[in-house]
Design a protein around this nucleic acid. Structure first.
Lengths: 208, 208
DNA sequence: TTTTGCATTAACAATCTTGTTAAACAAAAT
DNA sequence: ATTTTGTTTAACAAGATTGTTAATGCAAAA
């Protein structure tokens, strides 16, 4: 037992479940369609994961972890000078979201539809992030005092970066048809968008 | 027949349906729970709207119209000088989204889950918006030639404005618990955020 | 070889959800 | 007064979806 075949079967179900849940959400997902997509019988899915709920939680846990690590990407490389650091942070975060384009919508939908469930998880994440922000805020304040950049609130800056980067992907299907040629070539558009987001944020912190 | 009582009953169902669909989406919504919320029997809901699908479409139509008019708000007042116009456009759009905070997530989710359904609607909207953009782009180009502002792509600017304004509300439940005191007072935070978004965009177009 | 324990299947049970229908009802029109 | 028209209710039908179970297979351990 517990051989490669088993592992692989469980993995197959998880992979199919991830796809199904990320695109259709909990309510839209069908266990039978997950089973079909992973090539196992419907009963097998329940044998491995007992309930749809439990299968879903496996996916949610992983996705929440991925999501929070994406937020640390914005921090950038602490060894670089502050402007370079922020520049690299934006780019890293953008690439992260580009590699997981379905993630933000999924996480946001999940939190909106069952907020109580994540309260505990959240309070903790909030505390961790807060101390991390404080460090960066201190560095920004020092740079501002040296006259290198404008004095800004790091949390506000983070929200702006996330807004610009995430919205690009969350709203892509919404905007693609109404933006004409600008978005016709996806790769080209994403590269332009990434540069635009960096430019927008750098101008925000530039000393005037 | 067709008296006030009837009108009011249909309206009650529509109001409850709007709330249910906007918060839970099509799959998560239950006709029986809409009926309960509006104080009519389950059969009555079907009597008035035949199917869940038809009831949903009534809501979708209205919401899509609201959404597209929100996009025109970004245009601002054509009589003002360009910088003031953009400033006013951002503020108007922000207020619009603030008044309909559930709208963007609903529209995006709907488009992602059933894209084919909105293709036609979309191609038309795209054409309209395109010509509108062109007008504004021309004005921006003239102002840039006079050296008043930086030369920018108006579509990119629009995406940035939408990103900053919409993400604030879409991700509010996600960020509220991890941003600590910054978001503790909602009114205060939204006012600060609105100012921050305007500042960010104005700096983006400022001549350096 | 027999036993043990997990894996697998097929059939089924229970519940939920949408949607229908027939009958009762109310109000207005004839 | 009776017919007509639209409203409301209760009961039910149909189908989908999740989850269970009993029987069987199969591979390793004893």
């Amino acid at each position: 037992m517990d051989n490669q075949e088993n592992k692989s079967k469980e993995q197959l179900i998880l992979a199919a479940a991830e796809q199904e849940f990320l695109t259709k959400g909990y309510d839209g997902a069908r266990t039978i369609s997950i089973a079909k997509a992973s090539g196992v019988t419907h009963a097998m899915l329940h044998y491995y994961f007992r309930t749809k709920e439990q299968l879903f939680e496996r996916i949610v846990d992983e996705k929440f972890a991925t999501m929070s690590s994406s937020m640390f990407a914005i921090m950038g490389d602490p060894l670089l000078p502050i402007v370079e650091r922020i520049k690299g942070g934006i780019a890293a975060h953008f690439d992260f979201v580009a590699a997981n384009p379905l993630l933000p919508r999924f996480v946001i939908n999940e939190i909106v539809s069952r907020p109580e469930r994540y309260e505990v998880l959240y309070k903790r994440a909030g505390i961790v992030l807060n101390s991390v922000y404080n460090g960066l805020q201190a560095e920004i304040d020092r740079a501002a005092e040296r006259g290198e950049i404008e004095r800004v609130d790091v949390k506000m800056l983070f929200i702006s970066i996330m807004s610009l980067n995430i919205f690009t992907f969350v709203a892509y299907p919404f905007m693609e048809p109404i933006m004409g040629e600008l978005m016709a070539d996806r790769e080209r558009f994403l590269a332009a968008r990434k540069a635009e987001n960096i430019e927008t944020i750098l101008r925000r912190i530039k000393k005037q």
